[in-house]
């Protein structure tokens, strides 16, 4: 049987070294090359890096997340939720829904505008010298802090408005401060509320 003859000769050939010397060198070179290749082209073993030539040691360059523009996102929230009353033009409806373009409420205190959006408004209100009387629904259970901040940032920057952006943190702070409130705001109550954002 062949396998046995080869077994026997195994023992005869024990004096041979395992491999010829050149093979050891060649294999060592291959292993070193393999390690280097793996380091260079493995993209840091990330599931997000598809181009293997992306350099991942040192500062990470590849796979940068797309920058979100709150104004663009806010515009979408606005069109979906607000434009029915305040109109896409931001001009509102005379006597009912106040305009947002140039509105002193929108451009004024950050805390106030957040409060209005969170809890809504009831009763008469005067904007840009004209009276309006329509109810605004509370949005605190419909939109999260991020969406509220986006839509506020949007209405404070479109139609010629130019006020500072609102961050989700600001919304969260106001929401926390007014956590106990259930009723909508009236113009009077709003005037009484603190102008500054809670610390």
């Amino acid at each position: 049987m062949s396998d046995h003859s080869s077994n026997q000769s195994n023992e005869n050939s024990k004096h041979q070294s395992m491999l010829p010397t050149w093979m050891y060198w060649f294999f060592a070179v291959l292993l070193v090359w393999g390690g280097a290749y793996l380091m260079r082209y493995s993209g840091g073993f990330s599931g997000e890096i598809y181009d293997e030539s992306t350099v991942t040691y040192g500062p990470v360059k590849g796979g940068a997340a797309a920058v979100e523009d709150p104004k663009v996102l806010g515009a979408r929230v606005f069109k979906a939720n607000c434009a029915q009353c305040h109109q896409v033009t931001g001009l509102g409806v005379e006597g009912q829904y106040p305009p947002l373009a140039g509105s002193e409420f929108v451009l004024g205190s950050e805390a106030h505008v957040i409060r209005i959006l969170l809890h809504g408004m009831v009763g008469p209100i005067t904007v840009k010298g004209k009276p309006y009387n329509g109810n605004m629904a509370p949005w605190k259970d419909v939109l999260d802090d991020k969406k509220i901040s986006q839509v506020l940032t949007y209405i404070r920057s479109d139609w010629g408005n130019n006020a500072t952006p609102i961050t989700p943190e600001m919304v969260a702070a106001v929401r926390k401060q007014e956590a106990a409130r259930t009723a909508s705001w009236t113009e009077k109550e709003l005037e009484a509320a603190p102008n500054q954002l809670p610390k």
């Binding site: 294999f27 291959l30 598809y50």
Partner: peptide
């Protein structure tokens, strides 16, 4: 192809290192 780079690279390295057993077996 459209799979994360490390999978392909480790496979390429394994394929090259397969030369080690191949040469030993041929020997």
């Amino acid at each position: 192809g459209p799979i994360p780079a490390w999978m392909i690279t480790s496979s390429v390295v394994a394929g090259v290192l397969l030369l080690i057993p191949a040469i030993m077996i041929a020997n």
